[in-house]
């Protein structure tokens, strides 16, 4: 069977095109260049303002090298008994100490998709209550949880903790959803940090 000139031409044209394509790709690969563009969350900073005297204290979870590598450093939260604290949470990318990026504002921009949860552990629910700052809501009127109010009730015994979780893509109207329970709301974990808690006399 004979092959038409057109057919022969198209085969060669295809061949030529693919050779050109190879050359183009090659140019991209001449120099290895690593750019780490991933957004990292390394630090969580809790700022406590005692409503009685306006004194301020901060407690930090810090893991500047990200997952793996060195273990994170976690402050113990120390509060005084029978006090009311206004608490705000801040999340940072401090992987580059010269360019610390505040990610809290990004959470607030996407507030309908994010919510912080505060879960007392080891019996800490006897030592304090945490409630959402009622004035801080998203466009649907649901809480966000960047700002909270902590009431200390009694001194802690051993091993009490407070777990702070940031979830995204959750259903904020799910039944049973509360400041310490997100089980039925779906979504995924962005942040999950547990602090040791001490309430002193």
């Amino acid at each position: 069977m004979n092959i038409s000139k057109f057919f022969r031409f198209s085969i060669f044209a295809l061949a030529a095109l693919t050779f050109v394509a190879c050359e183009d790709d090659d140019d991209d690969d001449d120099t290895p260049s690593a750019v780490n563009e991933e957004e990292l969350i390394t630090d969580m900073v809790l700022t406590f303002t005692n409503t009685a005297d306006q004194s301020v204290s901060t407690f930090t979870f810090s893991d500047p090298d990200g997952p793996g590598g060195n273990a994170p450093s976690i402050d113990d939260i120390v509060l005084t008994d029978t006090a009311v604290y206004n608490v705000s949470v801040q999340v940072l990318d401090a992987s580059n100490p010269n360019d610390v990026e505040d990610i809290t504002s990004e959470v607030l921009e996407e507030d309908e998709e994010h919510q912080f949860f505060y879960i007392p552990g080891g019996g800490a629910d006897n030592s304090l209550t945490v409630t959402y700052e009622t004035s801080e809501v998203d466009d649907d009127g649901n809480p966000i949880g960047v700002s909270t109010v902590w009431n200390t009730l009694q001194p802690t015994t051993d091993n009490e903790t407070i777990q702070i979780v940031l979830r995204h893509d959750l259903d904020k109207n799910a039944p049973g959803l509360s400041i310490n329970d997100f089980a039925g709301a779906g979504g995924e974990t962005d942040i999950d940090v547990t602090f040791n808690l001490t309430v002193t006399d």
Binding site: I41, T42, D43, M44, F61, D63, G66, P67, G68, A71, P72, I74, V165, T189, D190, I191, D192, V193
Partner: peptide
Amino acid sequence: IELTIRGAFPR
């Protein structure tokens, strides 16, 4: 088990 800001992960 390693702690990260996203919670615990096995290493």
